[in-house]
């Protein structure tokens, strides 16, 4: 019932965020950001991590240590700037393979995206580097996040990578909400919640007879007949 619900703890963080401020965040906290965030996803990672191109921003960590997995809905405003409408994250699990190198090369301490990453990534990649993960909320709060973007500080590799993959630096104010998924110990909110949900799943299927024809995936042995 509604009256049993608890308010989530809210935090406001200035970027670049200090190690102390980051260490205080706990899974399930609601976070709003002030300062500069930058976007980088596979296009940028490929250039920097794989092809070893230099970062387009000198001493990035002193400007921003928050990497947003995002492609903005942006269009040139005709006056040399950009009109940013909505801002929504993209699913982060796909970028796992780049992340250790990226954090080492940039000094990034906050990764922001959709849906979190595997628990192993937190324990082995983010936490040992003092980094945490923030997830966007509902994955559709594009208007609230768009409202928090006050200016485009700069955009890099726009011609080459296109709007979705370019590296955008956004000046943000009261930018959120985000939820803390992983903390500096590598605990994961998604993992904990997933385990709670999983506990009830078997009962849902009780009494439902399985289909006559199985599919690969239900058995991983491709030599099996599926009958």
């Amino acid at each position: 019932m509604a009256e049993e619900r608890h308010e989530l703890r809210q935090r406001r963080l200035t970027l670049p965020a200090s190690a102390e401020a980051i260490a205080e965040l706990e899974p399930g906290n609601v976070v709003y950001l002030d300062g500069v965030v930058y976007t980088a996803r596979e296009g940028v990672y490929q250039k920097v991590v794989v092809e070893r191109e230099a970062l387009p921003v000198a001493d990035l960590a002193s400007v921003s240590n928050a990497n947003f997995h995002c492609s903005p809905a942006a269009a040139p405003d005709g006056k040399g700037g950009y009109n940013v409408g909505g801002v929504t994250a993209t699913a982060s699990f796909r970028f796992s393979k780049y992340l250790a190198d990226w954090l080492d090369l940039t000094g990034t301490k906050i990764v922001i995206g959709k849906g979190g990453m595997g628990a192993g990534d937190y324990k082995e990649v983010l936490a040992p580097r003092g980094a945490i993960y923030l997830t966007t909320v509902g994955y559709g709060t594009g208007a609230l996040l768009g409202r928090g973007v006050k200016a485009v500080e700069s955009v890099h590799w726009l011609e080459e990578l296109g709007i979705a993959q370019a590296m955008w630096l956004f000046r943000v104010k009261n930018f959120g909400p985000f939820l803390v998924d992983s903390d500096t110990a590598g605990n994961s909110l998604f993992q904990r919640q997933g385990e709670l949900v999983n506990a009830g799943i078997e009962a849902l299927y009780a009494g439902l007879k399985p289909p006559a024809l199985r599919r690969y995936g239900e058995t991983d042995d491709r030599r099996d007949e599926l009958l």
Binding site: C70, S71, P72, A73, G85, G86, V87, T88, T90, Y139, G140, G142, A143, L145, G146, R147
Partner: peptide
Amino acid sequence: ATEDRRPMCAD
């Protein structure tokens, strides 16, 4: 979104 006339989701 409705107040600002901006997309509710950027995707």
